[in-house]
Design a binder for these strands. Structure first.
Length: 470
RNA sequence: GGUGCGGUGGCCAAGUGGUAAGGCGAGAGUCUGCAAAACUCUUAUUCGUGGGUUCGAUUCCCACCCGCACCUCCA
């Protein structure tokens, strides 16, 4: 089956043709570790995880490379401002290296909580300084660069005829004409960007390295070009990232890489649209109040309810975040798990291999292969699990198979929850009252428990309870 | 100012040139002391507005209205 992917470069869905049959080399822009990642960031990682898992499900051997930006990302993309990591270190009174370590660990904690697969290769930018310098030297030799004294080595975008092809020529022309105030008048073109920034005496950087141009640190775009080519070759299959990277970061990666090699940098570009906050404004790091993955359990939600929420909307459509939406997703996921548990019980221990020739299986993989259409894939799962005409063991086998791509812990055993002694006593008292047919007292107690977030359920096998969210 | 995207039932959301997946919610029934849970059923002749192409458009084209994002730090 053909795997189709929307390619930002051509603005259309294309059949994915890998460089090596059956394999996919993917580079995904990772986090800048100067602060916690927020749930908007995580939407992108969930979508990329979906791509990786979908390709694997469809039989591809995937090598995913993800960078950790631990140096060189300035507070402004115009190559001005402070290095984010250095700024964060100063703010928190830590060393830059401690900041990086702390937020890298925090990131992967969230990453795992959302069931994102660990990338095959992880690369911190600070471990690839040599590769970045080499790339700068190559570009310099080929005449793509110029040096601004006491500032840095810059890429001359006028030297690359198709500069800006990813974002669209007209778009780059718009930038060139300077809709924005140009912060650095010494640049030859407003869209030129730094390959290497020189340390300045007043700056007192914690992270800096020697280079042919002087002591300093790499420009933000350098790491992705250097590391992607190091691990995946001069041309890679798929490059992913958030939609904001189209016009600057990825455009400049292309400029650096293609300038240096003369070859196509990436055959396919996949961009995930933003999660936006409905009422509380923009989801951004600079805005301060942003939600992290840990906000979810704090509100009583399984982080995977957020994964499900993201999967419910196609990655190329803007997703508006609301707590109501998370609630609906959480209920949906609960329902899906309950359905899965029921099917498992019906299957009574039988787990045959999944029938890959069955219509539902093909529908499911077809949805994945159609530009990673997760909402459609989920619909297939729901319909299949409910379809009584399919033997339960077959449905179970299918559900288990879909976990490889949906990763929603459908069959997770719920940890036995303990109720505080006083509430447990109320549950017992109510059960006794109910047995004695004292329904008035029984209903009072049920109401009281409900007010404390405990929902009573009377089953033929006795009374049970469960926590409600709140 | 530049670029791009979207408007589908109460809400979220797939989708297609031949008459609308799925989820949440809601309503009815079964069950229950009553509930809850579960199960069954129901819930858009209609896809922003106005034109056009077509035997036929929600799906293609044009115009318009509305909303949003990116180009500032973002994924």
């Amino acid at each position: 089956m053909d795997f189709r992917l929307y390619n930002t470069l051509t603005r259309q869905k294309e059949i994915f043709k890998p460089l090596k049959a059956g394999e996919a080399g993917i580079y995904t822009c990772g986090p800048t570790v100067y602060l916690y990642a927020h749930i908007g960031n995580m939407r992108t990682y969930i979508a990329e995880d979906g791509l990786v898992r979908a390709l694997k499900f469809c039989g591809y051997k995937v090598k995913r490379v993800m960078n950790i930006t631990d140096v060189g990302h300035l507070t402004s993309d115009a190559d001005t401002g402070e290095d984010k990591v250095e700024a964060s270190a100063r703010r928190e009174g830590k060393t830059a290296w401690d900041v990086v370590k702390f937020y890298t660990e925090a990131f992967f904690k969230d990453f795992k909580a959302l069931n994102c697969l660990q990338p095959e290769v992880l690369c911190p930018a600070t471990e690839y300084i040599k590769e970045m310098i080499d790339l700068g030297v190559t570009l310099e030799k080929k005449g793509f660069t110029y040096l601004i004294p006491k500032d840095g080595l810059y890429f001359d975008t006028a030297k690359l005829p198709d500069y800006g092809k990813l974002a669209g020529k007209a778009h780059v022309e718009g930038l060139r004409e300077g809709a924005r105030v140009e912060a650095n008048a010494e640049k030859r073109n407003p869209v030129d960007f730094a390959l290497w920034k020189l340390s300045t005496p007043e700056e007192k950087r914690q992270m800096e390295w020697d280079s042919p141009w002087g002591k300093g640190f790499p420009g933000w775009h350098m790491e992705c070009s250097a590391m992607a080519m190091k691990h995946l070759g001069e041309t890679i299959d798929i490059h992913c990232g958030g939609e904001d990277h189209v016009s600057i970061h990825h455009t400049n990666e292309i400029a650096q890489s293609e300038g240096a090699t003369g070859k196509t940098f990436s055959n396919y570009w996949m961009h995930v649209r933003f999660l936006v906050m409905g009422d509380s404004g923009k989801m951004s790091k600079s805005a301060g109040g942003f939600l992290t993955v840990s906000s979810l359990p704090e509100k009583g939600y399984d982080p995977l309810a957020y994964r499900y929420y993201c999967l419910l909307t196609h990655y190329r459509k803007q997703l508006e975040f609301t707590w109501e939406g998370v609630e609906a997703a959480a209920r949906g996921l609960d329902g899906l798990r309950a359905l899965a548990a029921k099917v498992k019980a019906e299957a009574s221990g039988q787990v045959p291999p999944a029938d890959r020739e069955a219509k539902y299986f093909k529908d499911f993989s077809g949805a994945l292969a159609d530009d990673v259409n997760m909402p459609a894939a989920l619909a297939v799962l729901w319909e299949t699990l409910k379809d009584q005409s399919i033997p339960a063991p077959q449905r179970l086998a299918f559900a288990l198979a879909t976990e490889a791509v949906l990763a929603l812990n459908l069959f997770a055993e719920k940890a036995a929850e303990e109720l505080p002694a006083e509430l447990a006593a109320l549950v017992k008292e109510r059960e006794a009252a109910r047995k004695a047919k004292d329904f008035k007292r029984s209903d009072e107690l049920r109401k009281a428990l409900s007010a404390k977030g405990v929902l009573i359920e009377d089953t033929p096998n006795g009374t049970t309870w469960k926590r409600t969210r709140g």
